[in-house]
Design a protein around this nucleic acid. Sequence first.
DNA 1: CGCTGTCAAGACGAA
DNA 2: TTCGTCTTGACAGCG
Length: 323
Amino acid sequence: MTVFRLGYVAMSKHVKNSSPSQTVTYKNFSHYADQEAAKNKLITIANSNIENSIRLLKHNKASGIFFFRLSSRLVPLATHEELNDWNYMKGIKAKLEELGDFAINNEMRVDFHPDHFVVLNSDREEILKNSVTVLQYHYKLLTGMGFDTKHRCVLHVGGTYGDKERSLERFIENWARLSVRLQQMIMLENDDKSYNAGDVLFLCEKLGIPMVFDLHHHQANHTQPNWLDSYWERIVDTWRSSDLPVKMHISSPKSDKQFRHHADYIDMKTFVEFASNVDGSVDQVDCMIEAKQKDEALFKLVEELKSLSHLEWINDSTFRFLR
DNA sequence: CGCTGTCAAGACGAA
DNA sequence: TTCGTCTTGACAGCG
């Protein structure tokens, strides 16, 4: 019987004033005459973001949630090229350790999803360089928290540049230029426009990368609609080298017209259909709920699932099917 | 205080 | 080749 564990993304609709993504724009930062004072301000905001992340993890624990995506914007301007000699780790080390200790002591799975400006298959050297900088930033955060850094960052493949085959090849070429520790930090996800599940599996199998399957993206972008027969077993296989359970992204389309947009909540029927389809195929599947209403969407989904009689609950966010 | 505009990034399609 | 759009949360500034 497969265990299904639910998590959510970065911020809470329930906990007030708990943004982990407060920031300063570079334009604003550059207006300060005293650069040291300005950097201290950035550190203050970063520590507030990390403190709010700790608050969110405490809220999660109280709610029985042990799977969470941290904001990638914890440290404002950390990866900005004008601040490339800034040692931001020094000022946030203590808070980061506190965050990591809490997550580790409570056996939580946390990871990151750097935004889509990390493009490993870019044909521009500058973009690749910036992408590596962003990955190194995530590596430092994970290490600062005391985490095993393996398979903690979900990425998309990137752009197609008018030639998808060539752009897939370029991903492989650029991948070889990454350090092993950055390679091992990465998971790859199918996207809703360019690289479908088959494309991502090709890369994941060739390069030994765990694949995060996004069901909603698959519905928006596929050549083989039947993911269960076409891809599922291969997706599970990409996780064999990982210590972490298979990871999924779950969201629902906002509307037929805006199909690719995320809805406020999760359609329970679609989720149950997915879960029952994969039940028994693997020990555990971690499902990241990506909905506009964040944790409230998770709570609503759980409430609806709890009205079903054929589920057994391990805690308030984890269940399996009864035989 | 609340609304509108601005910011940041890269891809991509239109003009 | 340049520009606008997409996307997202949060900040800045106006009234």
